Simulated scan of single mutants.
Amino acid sequence: MDIKEIMEIIPHRYPFLLLDRVESLEDNKIVAIKNVTMNEYFFQGHFPVEPVMPGVLIVEAMAQAGAVALLKRDEFKGKIAYFGGINNAKFRKKVVPGDTLRLEVELTKIRGSAGIGKGIAYVNDKKVCEAELTFMVG
């Protein structure tokens, strides 16, 4: 799935669209990519001397990937997924310009208009972040 297809599913736009492509989407599992470049707006202040992607934006990128997986389901097409919660977030390594962030999210529970997903972010097959994400569809 390319950027145009992603933008047909989720409402995020520059500067807050944190996905570049979806590599796979099967059942309740999605793998998406975010190419991290020095041109990201947040590197102006985080940190000018040592650019590091804010952990909260890594979690947001995972949530956007999860939202794509959720909103591709027939019952949620055309709706918006909102963040309902973040649990057990852990940050293991820095994400810096030049990294390719691979976001893997598995929707583990969907009940009514709510869902829970387990997200893991990797750089070079090394885990950089993981979290449990709660979604609400509106």
Rank of each mutant, 00 (worst) to 15 (best):
I30T: 08
A131R: 03
V49T: 13
K79Q: 15
K94S: 09
I30H: 04
L133K: 08
N35D: 15
P15C: 10
G115T: 02
A114W: 01
P15Q: 09
F91K: 08
V95S: 02
T134H: 08
D125C: 05
L19I: 07
E40M: 07
E50T: 03
A67W: 12
T108R: 13
F47I: 03
E23G: 06
A81T: 03
K126R: 15
I120F: 00
V105A: 11
P54C: 07
E130G: 07
Q44P: 01
M7W: 04
R13N: 04
E106N: 13
H12Y: 14
T134R: 12
I30P: 00
K109I: 04
V31D: 00
K93C: 00
M53K: 03
P54G: 06
K79F: 05
L71G: 08
K109F: 12
I86L: 14
I110N: 10
A89C: 08
H12F: 07
A131I: 06
C129V: 07
G55L: 05
A69D: 06
M1I: 05
K94M: 14
P54I: 08
V96R: 14
K118R: 15
I6P: 05
G84Y: 12
L19C: 09
V96G: 06
F43M: 06
L103G: 01
T108K: 14
A61M: 00
F16W: 12
G66E: 13
A89K: 04
M38Y: 13
L17D: 07
K90I: 14
V31L: 13
R111S: 12
A121F: 06
A67G: 15
V22T: 01
F83P: 06
R92Q: 04
D125P: 03
P51G: 10
K72S: 15
R102H: 12
Y41Q: 09
K4E: 15
Q44W: 05
K29D: 06
F43Q: 02
L19S: 09
G66K: 12
G55W: 08
V95Y: 05
G85M: 05
N87W: 02
G115H: 07
T37H: 10
F42L: 03
A114R: 13
P15S: 11
K77L: 13
T108D: 09
G85K: 08
V31Y: 00
K93V: 01
N88I: 01
A65K: 04
Q44M: 11
Q44I: 00
A69V: 02
K72E: 15
I30G: 02
E132D: 14
F42G: 02
A32V: 05
N88F: 11
M62H: 02
L18Y: 14
L57M: 10
V105G: 09
F47D: 14
I6K: 04
L101S: 06
K126G: 00
I33W: 04
M53S: 02
N124V: 05
